[in-house]
Amino acid sequence: MKLSKVVNAAIFLSFIFFTTGAQAKQIEVQMKSISYSPKLIAIHSGDSVVWKNVSYSEHSASGETFDTSSVEPKHKSKAILFEKPGTYTYHCKVHGTTMNGTIKVESK
């Protein structure tokens, strides 16, 4: 009985660990000269977006509720975790709304 309880608990914990660990993803968005690529992404709550600056100038990804602040060029990156579902628009603080993107966060 004791053994089965331990096994059950182990199975449950493993389930929790593996399900959460397997589903929390990191999605890369590239910061180009004057655009984000991809411009629109859909993720699940708990996922992170990693903005990687592949251009020659400084950028940011700045929305109403989040801000990477400055991301230096030459492949520097910054990540933001999105927990709440919703649609998040953002832009670059240096280049204004010309350089914009959207993240759709859906519930799991």
Binding site: S33, I34, S55, Y56, S57, E58, P73, V94, H95, G96, T97, T98
Partner: peptide, 11 residues
Amino acid sequence: KDGALQWDPEK
């Protein structure tokens, strides 16, 4: 030149 634009081009 790539990297020279340091402002909002809409403005």
